[in-house]
Simulated scan of single mutants.
Amino acid sequence: VKAPFDGVIDRVPVELGSSVMQGGEVATILSLDPVIARGEVSERDLGYLKIGDKANVRLVSGQNVEGTVRYISRDASTATRTFRVEIAIPNPEGTIPAGMTAEIALSAQPTDAVILPRSVVTLGDKGDLGIRAVDKDDKVVFFPIDLVDDTPTGLVLGGIRADARIIVAGQELVKEGEVVKPVEADRATIQKLLGEATAGTQ
């Protein structure tokens, strides 16, 4: 009997001298190199991952190992709306057994982002979610946003220029292209907005 792959014999359900029907099971062989860690990622995080990304895996034993993303599902679970990912972990000595509980930490590509209170997010003229800001000519402009994360202190948003002067109050009262007289928010106003963002998550 020849197995189609290298592995470790885990279970032998027959004994020496037993009769085995054609196609019957004679042994269970585990392929443990690589060993595969499976997990789920949210809809929000899916776009930041790609095949070949590195991942850190912490085993229930406390051991930390590094693996590589080998599979990302494109079909969300109907129950959780999450997507399955698989991490291939080198295991040449077979020291990591199959079925062990683990925590997976995935490292996405870095992106420029800012933390802003939820109250500054608004809808643009075309219905896009974003923020309004003022350009160098004091004209109102709109930036569509990319939601990176939702934290207790506010939203982590991408897609906003580093030098943008963001409208934090009255953004619903102006339109894109309108010339305004902006007043720089003082520290007390900013702290108040951040405090409201924190309170909204409790």
Rank of each mutant, 00 (worst) to 15 (best):
T101Q: 12
N91T: 02
R84T: 15
L106M: 09
T111S: 14
I104C: 09
I104P: 06
P117D: 10
V114F: 08
M100Q: 15
A102L: 09
P117I: 00
T111W: 10
D112Y: 07
I115L: 14
T82Y: 03
I104L: 14
I87C: 08
P90Q: 03
A76W: 06
P90A: 07
P110G: 10
F83N: 03
I115Y: 13
E93S: 10
R81C: 01
G99E: 02
T111C: 12
N91C: 05
P117W: 01
L116V: 08
L116N: 03
S107W: 11
A102K: 03
N91H: 08
E103L: 06
A88G: 09
P97V: 07
D75A: 12
E93Y: 02
A98T: 10
F83C: 03
P117Y: 01
A98Q: 00
A98R: 01
E86G: 09
Q109M: 10
A79Y: 13
I115Q: 09
P90Y: 09
P117L: 01
S107R: 15
A76F: 05
F83P: 07
A108P: 11
S107M: 14
I87R: 15
A76V: 07
V85D: 04
A98F: 12
P110H: 01
P92G: 00
A76N: 08
D75H: 07
P110C: 14
S77F: 14
A76G: 04
G94N: 01
R74L: 14
T80D: 07
A113Q: 01
T82S: 10
R84H: 11
E103Q: 11
P97A: 01
S77Q: 10
I96G: 03
I87P: 09
Q109E: 15
I104R: 02
